[in-house]
């Protein structure tokens, strides 16, 4: 657990400031941007088969697709990346995420049933993975962490049964 994102030193009042959370890998942005390109441009490509470029419907759809793409690429995804962060603090895992609503989640080690580490083909290309903490009554997911950190989180999650 040497490289694990463990707690930094608390300040003079024994607090661990909220801005000391560790962000996920910056490569996450690349994956999300690629996913966005696929999800916007594939429908746009099919648009050619149904409408001619001169038609008003085509223009409106193209404009909507461009607006969605620009908003997502320039606002939504950067904010999502900046907000997504986590930290391990002894027996507690803190995960902060969300864009419009910021969710500060905390999971207690004693309630983790098991941990799954999964990777999509895109994540595998970038050597990233998603970690799912399965709880007795819920789940907590940290997407797009590096494979090494994913392994460390898995070991931490499974350490309850260790002597």
């Amino acid at each position: 657990m040497e490289n694990a994102p463990v707690a930094d030193n608390p300040d003079e009042r024994g607090r661990l400031p909220v801005d000391k959370l560790k962000r996920v890998s910056p490569l996450a942005m690349s994956i999300w941007q690629l996913r966005l390109i696929f999800s916007v441009f594939i429908p746009a490509f099919f648009l050619f088969f149904f409408y001619r470029p001169q038609m008003l419907a085509w223009k409106l759809c193209a404009l909507a697709a461009a607006a969605v793409y620009l908003f997502s690429a320039l606002v939504w995804l950067p904010v999502k990346y900046l907000k997504l962060a986590y930290r391990l603090d002894g027996q507690t895992l803190y995960v902060r995420q969300g864009v419009i609503y910021t969710r500060y989640g905390a999971v207690f080690l004693e309630n983790i049933q098991y941990v799954t580490v999964s990777a999509t083909p895109l994540q595998r290309v970038f050597r990233l993975c998603s970690v799912n903490m399965i709880l007795a009554g819920g789940r907590m997911t940290i997407p797009c962490v590096s494979a090494e950190e994913g392994e460390l989180l898995r070991i931490w999650g499974c350490s309850r049964s260790a002597p």
């Binding site: 419009i100 609503y101 910021t102 004693e110 309630n111």
Partner: peptide, 12 residues
């Protein structure tokens, strides 16, 4: 010990 997770949700 019966609380498995806590989430503080903050809107803008």
């Amino acid at each position: 010990k019966r609380i498995v997770a806590v989430c503080f949700r903050q809107s803008v």
